[in-house]
């Protein structure tokens, strides 16, 4: 039954162009309501437990989230959260809500507060991994360095587990860059090998390189340079390549072209709003 429900939902979403999903929202909403009713009726008939119904809502929500259909994913997460008589810990559902908030450019604080409220109300014995994830999101929503948000013990837990260690390091690099503490960002970056990293990580490293290098020592090529040279047309559509051009111009004494910076701002706004800190660092 669960399988059918998910198939139905995925079928619904397929027919829409996911990028223009809003145009079919009413249709999808009706379809979801209709099938949800049927599924619940069938589950009731089979005497499904509250945990099973909960699991179905979570699966449906995860499915929606996988298609980036956040509006519908939220509905199902909240249905799962509001369901009474469930024996499992629901903390993880709040992480999904925070995650979606952040991806949509929201602060995520409201969802985080809901998590804290839930955890206070529902005590669970072992929340080790849940706590690690909570530490991670606590840092992200505060937009501060991990050392400014987490206690020493919490930091040690993160370091020991390793799962969130590097992602939090990236958070710290971004915070340093946005504060123009380029030397500190460089210290963290120097522990990493960036040569074959994705371009959106390389470009952060390049920005830090340009901002920290001695005027007399500009011999090393920027990491973004080979791709920039090979794909000259990509800067019209890629914020990393537009920034690469700006950095190359600055490096060779041409200075900023205001029109390039304006275009960069537009590209970041449209395609990568979470990378706005790069703009702040340029100014």
């Amino acid at each position: 039954m669960k399988k059918t429900f998910l198939l139905l939902l995925s079928a619904i979403l397929f027919s829409s162009s996911a990028l223009a999903i809003s145009a079919k929202q009413a249709l999808i909403q009706n379809a979801i309501n209709k099938h949800e009713k049927n599924i619940l009726a069938a589950m009731k008939k089979k005497n499904a437990s509250q945990d099973e119904i909960f699991e179905t809502y979570v699966l449906a929500a995860n499915e929606m989230k996988a298609y980036s259909a956040f509006k519908f994913a939220r509905q199902f997460y909240y249905k799962a959260i509001d369901l009474d008589g469930v024996t499992v810990d629901k903390s993880r559902l709040f992480f999904s809500l925070i995650n979606m908030d952040l991806l949509e450019g929201k602060s995520g604080k409201d969802s985080y507060d809901e998590l804290i409220h839930y955890q206070k109300k529902h005590k669970v014995k072992d929340r080790k991994f849940v706590n690690l994830t909570a530490h991670y999101y606590k840092v992200l929503i505060n937009q501060k360095l991990s050392s400014e948000v987490l206690s020493k013990t919490e930091l040690q837990e993160i370091e020991k587990d390793f799962t969130y260690f590097t992602p939090l390091k990236w958070n710290d690099i971004q915070i340093h860059v946005s504060r123009k503490d380029f030397k500190k960002a460089l210290d963290l970056l120097s522990t990493m090998d960036m040569n074959r990293a994705p371009i959106n990580q390389k470009i952060i490293s390049d920005l830090v390189t340009v901002k920290t290098e001695e005027k007399s020592n500009k011999t090393n090529p920027l990491l973004c340079e080979p791709q920039f040279k090979k794909y000259p047309g990509s800067q019209s559509a890629s914020y990393t390549m537009k920034l690469c051009k700006i950095l190359l111009d600055e490096r060779f004494g041409k200075g900023f072209n205001p029109s390039d910076v304006e275009k960069l701002a537009k590209l970041i706004e449209q395609k990568a709003p979470t990378q706005k800190f790069l703009l702040d660092a340029l100014k």
Partner: peptide
Amino acid sequence: SADPQYDEIIGS
């Protein structure tokens, strides 16, 4: 993925 525009998308 060698094209930086798509590298950027896939990386993020």
